[in-house]
Simulated assay, not measured.
Amino acid sequence: MYIKRIIIAVLLLGIVACAVFAYMVYGVFFTPNTSFNNETAYIYVKSNDDFNSVKAYVQPLLKNVDDFEATAERKGYTSNVKAGKYGIKKGMNNNEIVNALRSTNIPVKVSFNNQETVADLAGRIAAQIEADSVSLLTAFTDVDFLKENNFTATSKLALYIPNSYEFFWNTSAEKFRDKMLKEYHRFWNDQRLEKAKALNLSAVEVITLASIVHKETAKVDERPRVAGVYLNRLRTGMLLQADPTVIYALKLHQGNFNQVIKRVLYKDLELDSPYNTYKYAGLPPGPIAMPDISAIDAVLSPEKHGYYYFVANVENFGYHKFAKTLVQHNRNKQQYIRWINEQKINR
């Protein structure tokens, strides 16, 4: 009888111990362990981070970081950290947090537009994904990559079509560039390529002309008309004489793309640069900026007209006055020159 009681007591103690253990495990794994008020907190795990780095990231977000570590150890996460952007929702328990960190890398929207150089683009992208601007610039200017894909040092900016794209935050510089190449070919579908062919222009040449159109007018509804002017000049062998190309040439010559040039002077037109379309016929050797899609499509679907000249319209700011003859253009130009002198804009 005495032995029987001992056995029962031992069994009862075992049951109690198991219950206590189960309770403790439940508390560690399944009790909510967040300490922030927002609906979701985000952490960014770098490619070279280990578990100690992750623990440092999540510590300010948790009530009990030791319980989180115990759960991570139990689930094998401490030796299997993955880079990316991760969301921790308010009220999550440790089991859910570790699961989120293991398998729910959240894509990010990467947006860019209107960059004048690939260095500017690299800086813009580096602010949105893990890759830094140096590695991005190295990838963008890789000579072998450019040659393999029919780009040059002067046309490389044409590869990047301004838009919003979805990436994982931990995307490398090379993978970003390679996806942009795929997006470039997706953008240049059969319909756009046929339109470019009808204009006797390559895709890069279309983007180069579109970059000029983009710089000439911010008015999307005016871009097809401006594109029509430049295409008329190209067809008849006239110089493009586009002020934005001169501004680009000046910035390139001076090595300063941060300067603001509001007025092109007559002396600027003498700068010997392949980008100076007052001196050199045809298109410049590459885009002078990253044009909007609206500017690209304006070149591909230009307005058909007989205009060969245009100048800023001081009676309707943002738009231009168009002319078919040089005499008419000079009258329009005098009105603009009077206005710009009155504003004392010297540069």
Rank of each mutant, 00 (worst) to 15 (best):
M238T: 08
N330F: 05
F310T: 07
N258M: 00
N256W: 03
E315S: 00
A289M: 15
L240M: 14
H253D: 06
T217N: 04
I247S: 05
H305M: 12
Q254D: 14
T325Q: 00
K262A: 13
H329C: 02
R331S: 01
G318A: 10
A249P: 03
N313M: 05
H329S: 01
F317H: 07
M238W: 10
Y319L: 06
Q334H: 00
K333I: 02
E315Y: 10
V299Y: 11
K324G: 07
V264E: 04
L252T: 05
Y307E: 09
F322S: 01
D268H: 13
V264Q: 07
G237E: 08
Y307D: 13
L240C: 13
Q328A: 06
V229Y: 06
Q259Y: 00
G306N: 14
V246Q: 03
Y319E: 07
V327E: 14
K333Q: 08
T245V: 12
P285F: 14
R225K: 15
D292R: 05
N330M: 12
T245M: 14
D272W: 07
F317G: 00
K324C: 04
N232H: 06
E216F: 03
V246L: 02
Q259M: 03
I247F: 04
A323L: 00
E315D: 15
Y266M: 03
R233H: 11
I212A: 01
V220M: 07
A312H: 06
A249S: 01
Y309M: 04
G237Q: 11
A312I: 00
L234M: 13
N276L: 11
R331I: 05
P302L: 00
M238Y: 10
F322M: 05
N258R: 02
I247K: 02
L300E: 12
E222T: 06
H214K: 12
G228E: 09
S301A: 13
Q334K: 13
A227F: 10
G306M: 04
Q254E: 13
Y307G: 08
K251G: 03
G318Y: 07
S294N: 06
H214M: 02
K267N: 15
S301M: 09
V299L: 12
K219I: 15
H305S: 15
N256C: 00
A210L: 10
D268V: 15
S273E: 05
